[in-house]
Design a protein around this nucleic acid. Sequence first.
DNA 1: TTATTTAATCGTAATATTGCAATATATAAA
DNA 2: TTTATATATTGCAATATTACGATTAAATAA
Lengths: 109, 109
Amino acid sequence: MGLAKTELFTTEQNKLASLLKALAHPARIAILQHIIQSNTCICGDLVTEIGLAQPTISQHLKELKNSGLIKGTIEGTSVCYCIDEQNWNIARELINSFFNQNSNSADCC
Amino acid sequence: MGLAKTELFTTEQNKLASLLKALAHPARIAILQHIIQSNTCICGDLVTEIGLAQPTISQHLKELKNSGLIKGTIEGTSVCYCIDEQNWNIARELINSFFNQNSNSADCC
DNA sequence: TTATTTAATCGTAATATTGCAATATATAAA
DNA sequence: TTTATATATTGCAATATTACGATTAAATAA
């Protein structure tokens, strides 16, 4: 099919998977790291910093924006992207609590 | 293209993205939660617990195994899957440190 | 106004993912 | 051995993703 059967899963499972999907590409990881590391918001320099074409970067930025992890504000002819701190923290918590479900792991295997 | 340009990114960026990709599907989230929540290792019940066909579950299990997050041992005719605690912790740390890069965020947007 | 600059969108090709029926494999039971 | 049970693999259809050239849109500069 190619289509995830979202109706089989809980809203939380779908939400977590969707968030992880937004992060699951090296270009988007790189973009987020660039945004985080530059004190001021990075704008179009991403295209030169990362070696991908401008439409490709723009597409990845759109996905990150849709996920809520970043937000962009128009600044003259360019656009200024930065982390959406609130959603970033929500995402962190969501992933954290997934990883910290305590497995009463008797290491049975 | 449909092919990620891995050569543009660092090994760490690719590794993190690859790990996140393994997690980025509700079925695989659900499978991991089932494995964690059952005190003993879960075996074949996943097919009935989650509503997907047996080959589909098998495929998702394979991906999780490839990512290193779970391991399976043959137990008679069935296979017993459980979390690979060591790799699980490595994954947790990798994702954690990604989220905890301190943004010197002057909240510029 | 007409460039120029910057980013978004459109269209499309190449590839990947998801899901499952059919089949294969492997172990256990009869 | 034959049969039953459990899981893996194969092959394929439907859909999604990635990447980019061409174009568009929007703001600024000349």
